[in-house]
Computed example of a mutant assay.
Amino acid sequence: MDNTILEFIGEGTFGKVAKCVNLKTNENTAIKILKDVNDYAEEVEMLEKLRTLDPEKNNLVRFEDSFIVDDKSCIAFECLDRSLWDLMVQREERLTLNEIRPITRQLLVALNALKGIGLLYTDLKLDNVMLVNHQDQPFRVKLIDFGLAMTASEVWEGMIVQPCAYRAPEVSLGLPISEAIDMWSLGCLLARLFLCQNIFNGDSSYDVMKTICCLLGQPQDHLLDGEFDQIGNLADAVNVYSNAIDEVEVEDTWMRITPQQALEHSFVTMSHLADYAHRK
């Protein structure tokens, strides 16, 4: 083994993450030590697919190596700074729009790259976006942890993916899913950065869908059939809220923007600010 463990910096159901020093290069690395050898094989297979993408250009964590030592399945990555979750905890306040804007652009580039090779990330949340070096490169971020990523051909209707608060409505409703679910999660993540709380709260898909409908309007009734028949009529539960929403507005709010379209949005390009400066 060419790495010496300095400290353990993370732990989850998958296993642990250790900060190590590579004895050959004298550089720090982050080594993910997995409990399940099947998880190890699947993640390494996915990371090999990602080798076609430039990790720096596309804001993805750099995969360095994989190996098994003393029956421990290990995956080595570049060592990054801290997650957006850690940043929010340390700051104890919301991020400004000028801070959120570069994060938005970088994550859109990452999702656009994944979409380009037919991959769904499926696990976008604050913990899985890391600052590279916040002191030297403020708000330079990378997407990490591809243990739950999958190809578009692997998905099937009714499968449950994504953290509950970041879960796209088509997942909860058992409808066909695509790379578009990651854009929903991105919107939830950005709202969390700005509001310091989840925009869609709940302990279950039902609770989250109810909040979604209250805020954005109700999807067509036939889309609610099936999944929610077993736990109650969601349509009745939110009818008092959705009746006040214009039908055209509902249709518009349920459309999903693509990563490429979002990269051309004025929030990212700041074109609206330039127009405002000219008007002044």
Score class of each variant (00 low, 15 high):
189 L>K: 09
160 I>K: 15
221 D>K: 03
178 S>V: 01
176 P>M: 06
172 S>T: 12
219 P>L: 10
218 Q>V: 03
186 L>I: 10
167 R>K: 13
198 N>L: 04
221 D>P: 09
154 E>D: 15
171 V>C: 08
183 M>W: 05
164 C>N: 11
218 Q>Y: 01
213 C>P: 00
171 V>N: 08
205 S>F: 02
191 A>V: 08
183 M>L: 15
185 S>F: 01
190 L>G: 10
161 V>G: 09
161 V>Y: 08
191 A>L: 03
170 E>G: 08
188 C>V: 10
187 G>Y: 04
157 E>D: 04
222 H>N: 14
168 A>E: 04
215 L>N: 03
196 C>A: 14
224 L>R: 03
181 I>C: 12
203 D>Q: 10
184 W>V: 07
170 E>L: 07
181 I>G: 13
210 K>I: 02
221 D>A: 14
186 L>S: 12
198 N>Q: 11
202 G>H: 02
161 V>M: 15
201 N>Q: 15
155 V>Y: 05
184 W>C: 10
183 M>S: 05
212 I>R: 06
220 Q>C: 09
218 Q>D: 05
219 P>R: 02
222 H>A: 05
221 D>T: 10
161 V>L: 14
160 I>S: 13
198 N>D: 15
216 L>M: 14
205 S>T: 11
163 P>T: 15
196 C>Y: 10
192 R>G: 08
212 I>P: 07
173 L>G: 06
177 I>G: 06
153 S>N: 12
189 L>F: 04
194 F>A: 15
184 W>Y: 13
220 Q>E: 15
168 A>Y: 03
220 Q>I: 09
186 L>G: 12
224 L>E: 11
154 E>H: 02
215 L>D: 01
155 V>C: 14
184 W>K: 11
194 F>H: 14
161 V>Q: 11
213 C>L: 02
168 A>K: 07
182 D>H: 04
182 D>M: 05
165 A>Y: 07
165 A>D: 09
216 L>G: 07
189 L>T: 11
186 L>N: 08
170 E>H: 07
212 I>E: 09
202 G>A: 07
213 C>E: 05
194 F>W: 04
201 N>S: 13
207 D>Q: 12
174 G>A: 02
156 W>P: 00
191 A>D: 06
215 L>K: 13
219 P>D: 10
154 E>F: 00
202 G>D: 07
224 L>A: 07
226 G>C: 08
175 L>T: 01
213 C>M: 14
181 I>P: 06
183 M>Y: 06
222 H>P: 00
206 Y>E: 12
180 A>M: 14
155 V>S: 11
177 I>P: 04
211 T>L: 02
188 C>R: 04
189 L>W: 02
188 C>F: 06
214 C>H: 03
175 L>Q: 12
202 G>V: 05
221 D>H: 03
218 Q>A: 14
182 D>Q: 06
188 C>L: 07
164 C>D: 05
171 V>I: 15
221 D>C: 00
189 L>Q: 08
178 S>T: 10
178 S>N: 15
212 I>T: 09
212 I>Y: 07
158 G>P: 01
216 L>C: 14
226 G>M: 03
214 C>P: 00
153 S>A: 13
221 D>F: 00
158 G>M: 01
163 P>G: 12
170 E>R: 09
207 D>I: 01
158 G>N: 05
163 P>K: 13
211 T>R: 05
222 H>K: 05
168 A>T: 07
180 A>Q: 13
162 Q>R: 05
183 M>I: 14
164 C>E: 12
213 C>H: 01
191 A>Q: 08
208 V>W: 01
165 A>H: 13
